[in-house]
Design a protein around this nucleic acid. Sequence first.
DNA 1: CGACATGTTGAATGTCCTCAAGGTCCGTGG
DNA 2: CCACGGACCTTGAGGACATTCAACATGTCG
Lengths: 236, 236
Amino acid sequence: MQTTATARQTPALRREDCLKCEIWNSELFPSRPVDLFEQITQSVEHLFFQPQERLYASGAGGEYVFSVRAGVVKLVKDLPNGGERIVRIKIKDQLLGLETLLKQPYHHTAIAITPVQACRIPVSLLKDLDEHYPGFHQQVIRRYQQMVDEADVFITDLSTGQSHARIARLLLHYFDDGLSEVWHHPAREDLASMLGITIETTSRLMAEFKRNGYINEENGRLSLRDVAALKRLAED
Amino acid sequence: MQTTATARQTPALRREDCLKCEIWNSELFPSRPVDLFEQITQSVEHLFFQPQERLYASGAGGEYVFSVRAGVVKLVKDLPNGGERIVRIKIKDQLLGLETLLKQPYHHTAIAITPVQACRIPVSLLKDLDEHYPGFHQQVIRRYQQMVDEADVFITDLSTGQSHARIARLLLHYFDDGLSEVWHHPAREDLASMLGITIETTSRLMAEFKRNGYINEENGRLSLRDVAALKRLAED
DNA sequence: CGACATGTTGAATGTCCTCAAGGTCCGTGG
DNA sequence: CCACGGACCTTGAGGACATTCAACATGTCG
């Protein structure tokens, strides 16, 4: 399992590399003592996931928070009618499963969209850090704020208005920056599930955007060609 | 301004009553010292708001967190096309404007839906508490988790599927419990803005629900008549 | 009473979904 | 090597659904 597409694309991280995780690199650990290193390397596991693989499942009692080191993870919730809706997208340096800090079961199912590398951090370690390092909780609060912000984007930008506007906003938000370097080829199903529309509508509109020269997709690589036009569409 | 409809409906709270706020009543202040009381009563203001009045506006640099003591507040974001979308509903014992803890301007506009009583808490006070009372930040984290959870409800329940299902879910979620005691008569515009649909569609479907006996609205008081039927609709 | 905001209802249009068929790509097995 | 199946994407046609624009009703407040 170690010899994955991931391992070939990007050099495989080792357990020691978990120390490079953004959450330990904070100014909040001014004098990182040796025992902190030890504690981390002993309890944090570095894991690989293939596309479609689950990091955890909704409702499961969670003991771990995950930190994404490479790749893209979707957080999904099942719908009553059998489908599923994506509620957030997690990329490098973002944390998943923070609800376990409050002893709650996972609220979503976390699924790798691309090959993913992630650190699995025991809740007990985070609680230790919280006690010994005043100011560590600021990190957690900051990340919660990020989550709320992204949730608001999903509500206002991805769930409001007509579908061509929603797609334009999605493209601008997730494929105009470095994310497209990692998430080359979004599946129509995932786009649709982020927007609350059907796969067919998504496919039709993506095809139309291609025809109009707004976007491009060659050898499985999506890129934005006419950002101005997309911004115009996104306005309404 | 003190002699408001609010003051008549529910007994007006005084500044001392801010101490009864749920956030001070936590087990996290095991030995509430006198100086804490003093600090709170000196810096926390107790305010009244009429429907349509704003507690704060999106983009403004914020110095205050608000705690709702009575009534209902909506958090809205402006849309590019001129409309606005409600992203959360705040009721008793919920906090607004936590983003100011991170020195960020308010992310939403907070508007009273009903008459509202709220405590206005300076960020500096909360920072003090955070320093002197280890464990206070747990309160903040817990509330952030609540916000994320409600945001997810807005994404999966109120922004997904056909409009009659969305309305049914909204009614079950917000008018099946104690909230209907406070929020008697939801404006069609607010319901529509929570669901991302038009006022007309909302009006038509509410009328249909009334005709079918699922809900009732007399002397400006909404109540659910057939929860089972609504739950059936909510499933899809 | 008249003015204004809010809610309701109708008719026409437009958007999106459903159902269906066909296409492409890729891995597997004959 | 090619045939086949499966997963995914595309496209079309029809119908269901939501929006738009409009008229009218209701209620509130001066």
